[in-house]
Write a protein that binds this DNA or RNA. Sequence first.
DNA 1: CGTCTATTTGAATGTACTCAAAAGCGGTGG
DNA 2: CCACCGCTTTTGAGTACATTCAAATAGACG
Lengths: 199, 199
Amino acid sequence: MNDELKPYKNILANVARHVTLTESEKELFCSLLRPKKLRKRQYLLQEGDVSRYETFVDKGLLRTYYLDHNGIEHILQFSPENWWTSDLVSFNTGKPSKLSIDALEDSELLQIDKPGMDLLFGRVPKFERFYRIQFQNALVAYANRVVSHLAESAEERYLELSGHCVGLENRIPLKYIASYLGVTPEFLSRLRRKLTKKK
Amino acid sequence: MNDELKPYKNILANVARHVTLTESEKELFCSLLRPKKLRKRQYLLQEGDVSRYETFVDKGLLRTYYLDHNGIEHILQFSPENWWTSDLVSFNTGKPSKLSIDALEDSELLQIDKPGMDLLFGRVPKFERFYRIQFQNALVAYANRVVSHLAESAEERYLELSGHCVGLENRIPLKYIASYLGVTPEFLSRLRRKLTKKK
DNA sequence: CGTCTATTTGAATGTACTCAAAAGCGGTGG
DNA sequence: CCACCGCTTTTGAGTACATTCAAATAGACG
């Protein structure tokens, strides 16, 4: 690989999962990326702002959450390394976001803005496919979460999460996992104790 | 309006909410539609099949549901008149659907298949925008449902549903509403009694 | 080290479920 | 047109899952 592209190793591998790029396409793509660092607790996006970037997490961990009418946070998504994040709807409509995104750990990101995306789509149409797949995956992820709330108990949802994202359940503070699962921190604490006893 | 287009009044009005079509574009669009009638309890799509059409409900009522590992149905969506339905993911990937769709009432539908969509996108590019909006709306709808399960009690979810889709809560049998909300029919029955007493 | 926040533990409570049975309702056939 | 059957809805009683509030303990960070 071209030495200049080395900093983009992870994101290129991520793209390669769905589309195959030539060297010059890779270079074009990477030239449109903007690196960004985020300290723990910093916002990537605040409710009310417009989401102007699609963001790839090269290192670190972000969370996407919704603030309800009682001021309580509900986590919709965790984004560790090699995940994309943004408010897809705000990004595409240009309307203010109802979601917030912030860093749970110091993170290193790569961002592409809308003009960059449009340029990319014009020059490398197969990226449209890549983006459509991202959109689909987001839809599937949400649909699966709806089903898991309809069909499963908190215990099952927890096991699913910790099975699906191995390692993540020790890396993320309990209270955030509880928020993601839709239970209280106290209850998740008891749940964990019960599960460790079982083994 | 051209007399030939009258049977397509509803769907054209629906499209017009997002894109403006010329008369000849309308004619092209309608020529690609295939009418279909469905009797109560008939399937539009069965788990394992590939979703080959985007379907507009002209009349009637459909439901989309997921069958869990215990054989229990979990309703993800109701689609009354003037709604679109399909398994977006199966339609776009060509993979077998994990969802099923069937009719809760005798229904009249209009369908367009993938070749029709592609032809339409080629000749009338603004339809891509329309389709993208459909996709976004589906994403938002799922995201909202996740939030409603994280943030709200069954009672709040019920009030939200009956407020949002006025009339629908008397039209849909209780057990299906319970399945949509993620509660047992028994519990929803008690909930309703409690709510009518309140007034 | 002290302060602040996160986690754990306990006790009481509320929300929603299960199982069982009765009542209601719609369609079908005699 | 009525009687019956099957399915939906309601009601009751007991139980399990999950929350609230309060307090103790443990960890993180300056």
